[in-house]
């Protein structure tokens, strides 16, 4: 649970919408179980409830479900224009020109959730510069760390 809290703090998410005692860990993978699953499932499962992410070699890899929950909790985020949103899910980094709005503040090196114009969370990245700065439009603002195009890449 510690790794999840640390990641949530890294994007300034104010609170988590699930209880810590509903989180189960299985081989480094974390799931949160709803009250309907909790009494039935504790171990031996392949997947259960909402997948939150996995910890491996001291690093935490958040799931897209967790990222969406953190975005709903008001985590630090950039809202992209349509073209930048498409490029982001194709694995590309985000240019300053592609950012339509910034929610919260982000300094160089901060984790940032990435949203499209509808408010859907597309993944997350890491600020390359202070996002409040007046940088050149064609400069990279956010390095892509993880995007939902991964669902396609996994199946290859």
């Amino acid at each position: 649970m510690k790794v999840i809290l640390e990641f949530a703090q890294s994007v300034h998410a104010s609170e988590l919408s699930f209880k810590a005692d509903h989180v189960v860990e299985d081989g480094g993978r974390y799931f949160v179980l709803g009250k309907q699953l909790l009494p039935l499932v504790q171990k031996g499962f392949f997947y259960a409830g909402t997948y939150l992410g996995k910890a491996k070699d001291g690093k935490f890899f958040p799931s897209f479900n967790l990222l969406a929950l953190l975005a709903e909790s008001g985590g630090r985020s950039v809202v992209l224009n349509r073209k930048a949103a498409w490029l982001f899910i194709c694995g590309r980094d985000i240019l300053f020109a592609g950012i339509a709005a910034l929610r919260g503040s982000a300094k160089k090196g901060d984790n940032v959730l990435v949203l499209n114009e509808f408010g859907d969370c597309l993944g997350f990245g890491r600020a390359v510069e202070d996002l409040q700065s007046k940088a050149e439009a064609k400069e990279i603002a956010v390095k892509n760390v993880s995007d939902i195009g991964d669902f396609l890449r996994r199946e290859r």
Binding site: V32, G34, Q36, L37, L40, V41, G44, F45, F46, Y47, A48, G49, T50, Y51, S63, F64, N65, A68, I148, F151
Partner: peptide, 13 residues
């Protein structure tokens, strides 16, 4: 399940 944000399923082999 992850893509569709499903939360009430437990999967077993």
């Amino acid at each position: 399940l992850e893509r569709c944000h499903v939360s009430n399923v437990a999967v077993f082999v």
